[in-house]
């Protein structure tokens, strides 16, 4: 029962377990499209694992590159400022 509760909680953040980029039929992920990247980083600025977001492996690889580029050019944070 306890484990069921935790999985339900996790699912509640990302309700559908479908790759959102496959659903949009996105061929590539733009690093300056901050609106698309923002939901896929945690509050602390970490990249959300595909295990939780439900992204497919191909798009998760593209996503990590896009996020790292965006961080380099100050569009996304490396870590949250205090």
């Amino acid at each position: 029962m306890g484990t069921m509760g935790t999985t339900n909680k996790k699912r509640s953040f990302f309700s559908q377990k479908i790759c959102r980029f496959c659903a949009d039929k996105a061929e590539y992920i733009d690093f300056h499209d901050v609106k698309a990247l923002k939901p896929l980083i945690s509050e602390r600025g970490k990249i959300v694992p595909s295990r939780i977001s439900g992204n497919c492996a191909k798009h998760q690889r593209q996503l990590t590159n896009a996020i790292k580029r965006a961080r380099n050019i100050a569009l996304l944070p490396f870590a949250v400022e205090h």
């Binding site: 300056h32 961080r71 100050a74 569009l75 996304l76 944070p77 490396f78 400022e81």
Partner: peptide, 10 residues
């Protein structure tokens, strides 16, 4: 792209 807020201070 215009003026934007930076994610961290540069």
């Amino acid at each position: 792209w215009g003026k934007k807020r930076l994610a961290y201070r540069v």
